[in-house]
Design a protein around this nucleic acid. Sequence first.
DNA 1: CGTCTATTTGAATGTACTCAAAAGCGGTGG
DNA 2: CCACCGCTTTTGAGTACATTCAAATAGACG
Lengths: 184, 184
Amino acid sequence: MANFAMHITLDPAETDYVQSILQHKVIKKNTVLLNSGDVSRYVYFVNRGCLRLYHTDSTGLEHNLSFSPENWWSSDIASFSGQRPAFYSISALEDSDVFCLSYDALETLYIQIPKFERFFRILTQNGFSMYQRRMTSNLSKPAEERYRHFQKKYPYLEQRITQKHIASYLGITPVFLSMLRRRT
Amino acid sequence: MANFAMHITLDPAETDYVQSILQHKVIKKNTVLLNSGDVSRYVYFVNRGCLRLYHTDSTGLEHNLSFSPENWWSSDIASFSGQRPAFYSISALEDSDVFCLSYDALETLYIQIPKFERFFRILTQNGFSMYQRRMTSNLSKPAEERYRHFQKKYPYLEQRITQKHIASYLGITPVFLSMLRRRT
DNA sequence: CGTCTATTTGAATGTACTCAAAAGCGGTGG
DNA sequence: CCACCGCTTTTGAGTACATTCAAATAGACG
């Protein structure tokens, strides 16, 4: 729960309330938490393990949009916030345990403790700005630089995540990433 | 002010209050509203004209991240929300008029009318999800498809914005965009 | 009008991809 | 505990997409 303390302060009663609405879930590697096309009923907070958010294109290829290791949130925010069919899917890259926050519980939470509007506003702002930077990086830099940057920024992920998933995240083929790695 | 009504409802007194804190500004084409490196003191709502948000890389090249025509917001959200030096710059592509909302005024607004936490949370969520989609599109599609998609999605921008700016937004060179256009 | 910038066109180059085959690695069952 | 199967990674050759450089043309604006 220390995570919430990053942007807002909660008294003990509020902390209890939040804990009461979170569902804890232990899942095995490759478990799918959200299937593209379904309505996303939960946002996930990763306590242990790692999730990935990805899109499956018309040719069946998967494109990873983000990885969520410990202490990160994962969701198809458009699907969740609008309760519409999801464009993305979410699955576990490792055995994981996560806290699930349902749409209804969150909408109630916003009413009960409006501070959470602030919390999720700030959380979303940070995510927004991360994607802005990543877009710019993708528009302006060749694959090799993007990969070097990924290594520097997420050294722990580089160890844990297979090449094909990193390649997909970077928008290149596993074959090409293998080449880049050779010329370290 | 109809823009706020999209996500929250305001009574007349609240509407007046909001209008009182917005500064109206008329600017000429190419006016720079935010310079990379400066702290962004305002977010901008475009009433007429069009702004662009862009990054200037180490070689001096500019990379457009977004265009904001009428009824869109523009800001380097990381700089604004953290009051840190900006990574991006903002300038006007056309003679424009904008409403400026200062950091201090907005923080006060959040306290005076907490509904605005909700408004900007939703606004940010929508932007967040737009960038997610755009990232995925960039990772998975070749330049031509991205361009065709841009044409379909923003036909009005295609008319108003010069090729070099569209090319920069798409992450390709103006020369290559010219080629793509020929083979329509 | 004249100047400056943007766009077009063409040729040569480089970056990243596809296809194919071999090697490596991880999990599972005998 | 080893052997096998399937999936991932490596390697190489050939190709396609997108860039750079250069020069000519077109458009915008004072």
